[in-house]
Design a binder for these strands. Structure first.
Length: 110
DNA sequence: CCCATGACTAATT
DNA sequence: AAATTAGCCATGG
């Protein structure tokens, strides 16, 4: 049942579910998320919007989602907080940049 | 329905 | 490598 102001769009639900399956110590990108949603890689912006309004942790580890170029992107609670969380998970960050080749999680694995 | 916004991306300069 | 431009999507007013 839905309560007033509690309803979220199907798009958000899908995004959250994908983000949730990202293991600790790994990261994903907005583009990969959008691609898995079947919208092609063009919905990357909408994914960012969904995550921006996401419930946050531990419900959704939205901090594990970064930009496709390795840059951290943004974070509702502060980009510095995002970097700290990622560092805690064992991810090395250089000047707000992450090595996707090393930490990128393949969504197709699950 | 139209317009504005944003945690994006790719291409260009 | 950094800054700029244009393109695309979902959401909310």
């Amino acid at each position: 049942m839905k309560m007033a102001g509690d309803y979220r769009t199907g798009f958000q639900e899908k995004v959250y579910q994908l983000v949730r399956m990202v293991p600790r110590g790994k990261v994903s990108t907005y583009r990969e998320i959008a691609g898995s949603l079947g919208k092609g890689k063009l919905a990357c912006r909408a994914v960012g919007q969904a995550l921006n309004r996401s419930p946050g942790m531990p419900a959704v580890p939205c901090h594990r989602v970064i930009r496709s170029d390795g840059h951290l992107g943004g974070f509702a609670w502060g980009i510095d907080k995002k970097a700290s969380l990622l560092a805690e998970e064992g991810i090395e960050i250089k000047n707000n940049h992450v090595q996707l080749d090393k930490y990128l999680f393949d969504l197709k694995q699950e």
